[in-house]
C-alpha cells in the first residue's frame, strides 16, 4: 500500500522521560487519523516527529517517499512549509502580524509575491468564516477565531498532510465544534490527510481511525480502512 506518512519504530526521550518507545503508524492519502491517550502518553511528541519539527533518536519518518529524519533542519523546514500544515493548541500565530498576514506567511516565506499570497490567504479565511477579522492582530481575536486563522495558515500552501495538536483543546464545546468542522471539511475537500492529537472524544469520533497511545507505545488502533 502507498502510505503518505510512514512512522517506524520511533524512539524519543526528553531529560528524564522516554516519550516514545517504538511507535509505528501509517497515514494514507486523504485519511483522518486521531491519536488519543492519557496526558504524558507521547501523543504530542509523536505529532512533532511526524511533522518534522522534532527528530526521533531511533526509527524512521517517511513522508511521501522522503526520509524526513535524514534531512537537515532547513530542508525539513522547507518541506514542512510546503507539504505539511501544523495546527497547535494555541499561541502559534505571530503576535505582530494580522490574521491575513499570518495566514499568508508560509507563502511569503516560500517566495510568493505579496498580492498573490494575500489573495490566497483571504480566500482561506473566507472559507473558514473568519474573513471579517482579516486585518486584526491575534490579540484581538477570540480563541476560536485564532484557531481558524491557524487552520487557514496550515492549509494555505495546499499541503498533503495537516498535523494538529489538540486543535480544540483550549476551546469550549461550541467554539471547538466550529473549528473542528471547518478543519475536517477543508481537509476532506482537498483530499488532505489529517493527523490529529486529541483528548476530545468528539474529535476522535469524527476521524476515520483512532490510534491509542499508552506510555509511549501504541496500545490499540483500529485497522486502516482501505480507501
Amino acid at each position: 500500500m502507498n502510505h503518505l506518512l510512514e512512522l517506524r519504530g520511533l524512539h524519543k526521550s526528553f531529560a528524564r522521560t522516554e516519550a516514545l518507545r517504538g511507535v509505528s503508524l501509517d497515514v494514507q492519502p486523504g485519511e483522518v487519523v486521531a491519536v488519543t491517550g492519557a496526558s504524558g502518553s507521547g501523543k504530542s511528541t509523536l505529532l512533532h516527529c511526524a511533522a518534522g519539527v522534532l527528530v526521533p533518536e531511533a526509527g524512521s519518518v517517511t513522508f511521501a517517499g522522503q526520509r524526513l529524519h535524514e534531512l537537515d533542519e532547513s530542508a525539513r523546514t522547507r518541506l514542512r512549509r510546503r507539504e505539511i500544515g501544523l495546527v497547535l493548541q494555541f499561541g502559534q500565530l505571530v503576535p505582530e502580524l494580522t490574521a491575513a498576514q499570518n495566514a499568508a506567511l508560509p507563502l511569503l516565506l516560500d517566495g510568493t509575491d505579496r498580492r498573490t499570497a494575500r489573495t490566497a490567504a483571504l480566500a482561506w479565511l473566507e472559507r473558514l468564516g473568519v474573513a471579517e477579522v482579516a486585518d486584526q492582530v491575534p490579540a484581538e481575536l477570540s480563541g476560536g477565531e485564532s484557531q481558524r486563522v491557524a487552520v487557514a495558515r496550515a492549509l494555505v500552501t495546499g499541503p498533503r498532510l495537516v498535523c494538529a495538536d489538540e486543535p480544540t483543546g483550549a476551546l469550549d464545546t461550541v467554539a471547538g465544534e466550529v473549528v473542528l468542522t471547518a478543519l475536517l471539511a477543508a481537509v476532506r475537500d482537498a483530499h488532505t490527510s489529517l493527523l490529529v492529537v486529541t483528548h476530545d472524544n468528539r474529535v476522535a469520533a469524527r476521524a476515520d481511525r483512532e490510534v491509542v497511545l499508552r506510555d509511549g507505545s501504541v496500545a490499540s488502533g483500529q485497522p486502516a480502512v482501505a480507501s
Binding site: T77, R78, L88, G91, L93, V94, P95, P106
Partner: peptide, 19 residues
Amino acid sequence: AARERRLAALRLAGATPGE
C-alpha cells in the same frame, strides 16, 4: 520573551533556521 515567541512562531510557520 516576546521576540523569542515571535521568532518561534515564525519557525512554526515554516521559516528556516537561516531565515
